[in-house]
Design a binder for these strands. Structure first.
Length: 354
DNA sequence: AAAGCGTGGGG
DNA sequence: TCCCCAAGCTT
């Protein structure tokens, strides 16, 4: 495989392309491992434009790893609100505590140590080790899969363990010992803005002459990924108990979506329920709700990567003082603004409450 | 090892 | 509208 392109010339060509085409991003040209780590966690499965404002917000709210470690988890989640994959924020916070408590506030310098940290997997460990400490370990992310699979004609499934090993081995063959950071940044940047998923810019590509995909017109079928996410439909019926200017909210704790975020008491059903149908549901009996005190929202369709949530909110204005619920409490509107909430909940609040 | 975990943007 | 995706990690 490596015979198709000389490894030394590949990295030189790539780094040369990178120096001429790189974007000016705020987490480049910083040497603080904390900021590099922060940017890498934010950018997991996230576009640069979407992550950018969060990076600035986190640097401002938590200038050092100590500041982050000392914060309440809910404050961290609140800052992360809207970015999705909230386990990243919980692990970010856990990791900050580990760095402060076990590493006297200094990030470890090697891939092998970094990869043990919560929320830091093979990609992020390689990124920090190379960007912050100059270690020659190759990053392998979605951009790298795409660029290498096309140029070298690798048809392994990138979602399989075997495929990941193949790509990691190749990238580690190609990475030069003297400029590991530039190589890693360059390969990702190349995949991101040159060798794009659709309509790659092959006519002006420095690897055109040796690119397997270009020669065989296989850009659209590389990289190979087998997995298909099956979409699950779920029907959410939220009970929004209102007492003055306060709503009953609770933290999601189940092993499910939005763990750690706040929402309302939820009745999930197998089909969408009208107000009439909801009121006769068994789960509602303990609440002793009067029909005329309930107003229902329109149906929200909230799209997650793997679930479609068909959701209706039922505002209950005359809630009993003692709700038969073991978690949660009434929060004033002011408090609610500060709670970490899924986008769906924020949308409802904006549409019907605030 | 495969499934689960968000959100918003683009073709 | 629908599908694919975007600098992955955890269990």
């Amino acid at each position: 495989m490596q015979n198709m392109v000389n490894t030394g010339s590949f990295s030189k060509k790539l780094i040369n392309w990178y120096e001429q085409n790189k974007r000016d991003l705020p987490w480049r040209n910083v040497s603080d491992p904390y900021k590099i780590w922060l940017s890498e966690i934010i950018l997991q499965q996230t576009r640069v434009n979407q992550g950018m404002p969060y990076y600035h917000k986190f640097v401002e709210l938590f200038p050092t790893v100590e500041d982050l470690a000392q914060a309440d988890e809910s404050k961290v989640l609140r800052a992360w609100q809207g970015l999705g994959y909230y386990s990243r924020a919980r692990n970010l916070h856990r990791c900050a505590k580990v760095i402060v408590q076990n590493y006297v506030g200094m990030f470890p310098k090697t891939y092998d140590e970094l990869v043990k940290l919560p929320g830091v997997g093979p990609y992020t460990a390689a990124a920090i080790a190379s960007f912050a400490f100059g270690e020659a370990t190759a990053v392998v992310d979605g951009n790298v899969f795409r660029a290498l699979s096309r140029i070298f004609g690798i048809e392994d499934d990138i979602n399989s363990g075997k495929g990941q090993k193949t790509f990691r081995a190749l990238a580690n063959e190609l990475i030069p010992a003297n400029k590991p950071a530039e190589f890693n940044q360059g390969l990702m940047e190349f995949g991101s803005i040159q060798c794009t998923p659709t309509n790659p810019h092959c006519e002006e590509c420095v690897f055109q002459s040796e690119c397997f995909a270009y020669k065989n017109d296989l850009q659209s079928s590389l990289p190979v990924k087998v997995k298909k996410v099956k979409i699950k439909k779920r029907y959410f019926n939220y009970l929004v108990f209102k007492k003055g200017n306060a709503l009953f909210m609770q933290e999601r704790q189940a092993k499910d979506i939005w763990k750690g975020m706040y929402d309302f008491p939820l009745i999930e059903s197998q089909k969408p329920l009208s107000k009439k149908e909801l009121l006769i549901a068994d789960e509602l009996k303990p609440f002793n709700i009067y029909s005329e005190a309930v107003s229902d929202s329109h149906e929200y369709k909230h799209i997650l990567s793997h679930q479609h949530l068909y959701t209706r909110f039922f505002l209950v204005e005359r809630a009993a003082d003692n709700l038969p619920l073991d978690k949660g409490r009434f929060f004033s509107y002011e408090e609610i603004l500060d709670l970490p909430k899924p986008v769906l909940i924020s949308s409802y609040l904006k549409d019907y409450i605030f």
